[in-house]
């Protein structure tokens, strides 16, 4: 496994810039998630590492080796697609052994390796089946086994679970995360689903419009977003305007004491879980969405700004109800 480094990668298609001066490192053995809205350049980034796109500017390095112009078939990267892209003309075992066959590994060795991987992914009993006869989750396991069989420098996963149903997704992502950690695989995980990225990745890179907005551990990105885009994209958040004076934050409707080390007008991020019912601040319910275990409330503050918070699922709210709320100053994050 290797460290993958992207050095100021820029990719233009005609006049359109898909990726704009991206610097990113995937450390040896980590799972790095790339999240962002569609069209943010995450798939282009993945394809650049795989070698299917040559960057207009910048370099791709695997450890110390510059691979910018090396064709994909010589890069030794594993690819897992959303569409699985399994070879329907070959059995599951032949699919998994394909990469080794291309490397002229002797038949018995590649067969043993394929069986070992299928065993590891719990699908050994499917080895002789054709991929078209498998379920979506099983196909994705085959796709993963096939990509891992070649012991790639880096494993690239492009929205691998988007086609699967929620329960299966939840189970599979834990399994995959554990497996990749056990194998110590360097992986890049591209997804538009930030929950999935939070659950699976060691670090998350947030991309927007071809630029890197922030990269860090899931908790860093969630708790200390560097800008409003990241705050908004990762989880639900309320971004409010306020003013910091002498370490106190004035939000207009309420003043929070604490040690805020900025001064002047600022933007702050208040996560729904930092808002509690019961407190000094009066608000009116605008919308209540019952979600079973909880009710998500959108409430209007006295100055008509709205914030989202979560309430217990067993209390009924309706539009127009008056509630009082409090803000926990310790978990308010001031954007730089």
């Amino acid at each position: 496994m290797s460290t993958v480094t992207l050095e100021s990668i820029t990719k233009r298609y005609g006049s359109e810039t898909a990726v704009d001066g991206l610097d990113l490192t995937i450390r040896d053995g980590e799972i790095l998630g790339i999240v962002g809205p569609s069209g943010c350049g995450k798939t282009t980034t993945l394809r650049t590492i795989a070698g299917f796109e040559t960057p207009t500017k910048g370099d791709v390095r695997f450890d110390d080796q510059v691979v910018t112009h090396v064709p994909p078939e010589q890069r030794n990267v594993g690819l897992v697609f959303q569409s699985y892209a399994l070879f329907d003309t070959m059995s599951v075992r032949e699919n998994v052994a394909f990469g080794l066959k291309m490397r002229d590994v002797p038949v018995d060795q590649r067969r043993a390796r394929a069986d070992e991987l299928l065993e590891m992914l719990d699908i050994a009993d499917l080895a002789d089946r054709l991929p078209a006869t498998l379920s979506g989750g099983q196909q994705q396991r085959v796709g993963l086994a096939r990509a891992l069989a070649i012991e790639p420098h880096v494993l690239l996963l492009d929205e691998p679970m988007t086609g699967l149903d929620a329960t299966l997704k939840a189970r599979l992502r834990i399994e995959i995360a554990d497996l990749l950690a056990d194998l110590g695989v360097t992986a890049l995980y591209v997804t538009h689903d930030q929950t999935e990225a939070m659950a699976m990745c060691d670090r998350i890179a947030v991309l927007n419009d071809g630029r890197l907005e922030q990269v860090g551990t899931p908790s860093a990105v969630y708790e200390r977003p560097e800008n409003a885009f990241v705050a908004d994209f990762i989880g639900t958040s309320n971004v409010l305007e306020g003013t910091v004076r002498d370490g106190r934050l004035d939000l207009g409707v309420v003043e929070l004491s604490g040690s805020f080390d900025a001064s002047g007008p600022v933007q702050v991020v208040v996560r729904p879980e930092s808002l509690d019912l019961g407190g000094p601040l009066e608000a009116t319910v605008e919308q209540a969405t019952y979600l079973g275990d909880r009710t998500e409330l959108i409430v209007a503050l006295p100055d008509e700004r709205t914030v989202t918070l979560r309430a217990d699922g067993n209390v009924e709210y309706s539009r127009g109800d008056s509630v009082s709320i409090s803000i926990d100053p310790a978990s308010v994050c001031v954007l730089p």
């Binding site: 078939e73 990267v77 892209a85 070879f87 394909f98 990469g99 291309m102 490397r103 096939r146 070649i150």
Partner: peptide, 18 residues
């Protein structure tokens, strides 16, 4: 899924003609 089939095969080490 022509593109992804081709790309899978190539990422696994198959040259384009192969």
């Amino acid at each position: 899924d022509l593109r992804h089939l081709e790309e899978s095969a190539r990422s696994l080490g198959a040259s384009w003609p192969r």
